[in-house]
Design a protein around this nucleic acid. Structure first.
Lengths: 194, 194, 194, 194
DNA sequence: TATGAATGAGTCTTCATTCAT
DNA sequence: AATGAATGAAGACTCATTCAT
């Protein structure tokens, strides 16, 4: 199971990257976390950047597996949003570290490194899926029309993903429960209706 | 105007920190941004870290000036939340770079460096103000009681501050306008009521 | 033999420190002396200061091994002084560079750096051993009573240790021979008796 | 009195050099000691090295004034040694800092810098005066013939000058008194004669 | 005479990476 | 698969020095 070992190493790396930031993390810290010497990591990976790459792309691949399934189901706008949010929280649950890294680093990586071009692609695909669904919802009279739609998009997007920064797996709330509450807030607001 | 110069340098540094991340930023990049040599920065600041420190603490000081004024007004819970959100967007407008840095770096700085202990203090004070207001709102029947209150707190908090990551001053939306729309979404949700 | 390598590196470092002074010595000079790059030294030592530390503490440890053996023998005052002087010249022979460094740097290191506190401790123990022996000698009528005893102490102490500044091992005089002549001068003076 | 000011500055510089070592001393520390800014020193001196130069050469000039007077008196060997030692302690009293600097730095300065060639010259003249006197003393039957004469020379030379490392002016012992005791030790030894 | 700001060279140190074993 | 030792490039920081004011 060499694959097994890789996954262990990447998990450890992701954890450290998430806590300290990619740049602030030294290869030695990762090696310490898995009980080997820094140089030994290079038997498994070409470079520190390759680990980051694999962490992020693995996460995005899985994310899109989930998202594509949702989108393929061609649900109504509201149901689609509900499904996407739920799926997102499941991914946060599965790839918490990767999500945290993504939040912190994706923007400047996409901007500055050719290698991470797929981050920009994903971002665009992402925007298309969410923003499109919201627009469809407005058109269908399911979502409010009096809001700036791009603002709404950012609101929903950020609202969901930042959760990775405080989420701890196995905590009080399971992913689905958090998704349910978030959806309730996003859709209906926190003010009591009278 | 020696104060003037400091402010210029700090503004430039904040900008670079915000874009690249603190660790990924070299002192030379900051110096380039202001047209001096790297070593020359040390005439004005003791260390790279001292710049970060001053950027963050200046921002937090101003933030608390605003927040304290709001809290001193002893408005109702809903009006307090509205004022805090509006004030927050004003701070994002004034200190966009600092806010972005804060979002990315505050957590591990507070955890790992004695020097940045005030970040943890501020975070606690922050939580007390917001969470307290939300709780008061639930008790007063202004906010929904069926939501996990801590989850609600994080939802509102994150939702507001991540905006710094995409906000560009002088863009279409002025701070107050964004605040108005965000408040509308947070309070009433994005779903159309029937 | 990783210990072997360390010793080589420390020996080279000590040599350069002794000739140029600690502060005036660059890490690169040490590296050059052993045929590696400056950065490579940091695989073996934490810092330039750590090398200095190890050089000095190794020397002092060996010195005290010798001194303690002498003191444990409980010889008469004159014989003790003779043995201490002889032992000192042996140490100069073995650790010439370290002794030279000690002479130049010990005082301000002990005064300014917590890390080198043991230098002050050693100095005190040293004074106790020598001064005590001299006092015992005066009391026993072996040494002159008409001299300021602390002045005598400094006279003997300095007289012995400065020799490290000109001593070259394998030179005409072996350590024991130098010790013999120095003792003769210190004890009986250079004036011809009549 | 611009001369006056120079002397003040040099005295301050010498003090710091003596305590910390020339290399370890920053121009700023000197400036602090006299209450000005680092750059301002360059109105008075061309370079840090120029200060060191002036400190050492001033000291040596005065030293040789004294020594030359002694040598010109053409006393007997023993009386010459006595006069030289006494004169040396007077110089230590007057130029303690300069002497301490000389002890620490002269050797490598003379070896490595053209500018300080006069240190080597002085050293040679010095050796000629002392060693010559000792040889004359041995020839005259005033000093012991059974000692290695160069060893004796170093013994006397070092013994006198290291005193600068512990001497504090205005302390218990005046220069002349210390000289008297040192001479007594050097000439007659510390052992009680029977 | 002295200040304040800046320069530029150099220092220690870090760290990703390599490679023989 | 992993170690131990080293490389080399870069980074933060220091400091003697300069110079306009």
């Amino acid at each position: 199971m060499p694959e097994e070992r890789r996954r262990e190493l990447l998990a450890a790396a992701a954890e450290v990257f998430a806590v300290q930031g990619y740049d602030a993390t030294t290869v030695r810290q990762i090696a310490d976390a898995v009980g080997m010497l820094a140089g030994s990591l290079y038997y498994h990976f070409d470079a520190k950047e390759a680990m980051l790459d694999e962490i992020l792309s693995t996460f995005l691949d899985e994310l899109w597996d989930g998202y594509d399934a949702v989108l393929a189901a061609r649900l109504g706008p509201r149901e689609t949003i509900e499904a996407l949010v739920t799926e997102s929280f499941r991914e946060i649950d599965r790839h918490r570290a990767a999500v945290a890294i993504y939040q912190k680093e994706a923007k400047h990586l996409a901007a500055q490194q050719r290698r991470f071009g797929y981050l920009a692609d994903s971002r665009q695909k992402f925007e298309k899926a969410w923003l499109g669904t919201l627009e469809r919802g407005v058109a269908d009279g399911v979502f409010r029309a009096d809001l700036d739609i791009r603002l709404t998009y950012r609101f929903v997007r950020d609202t969901v993903w930042v959760a990775a920064s405080w989420y701890r797996p196995g905590a009080r709330h399971r992913a689905e429960e958090i998704a349910r509450q978030y959806l309730s807030m996003v859709l209906d607001g926190i003010a009591l209706r009278n």
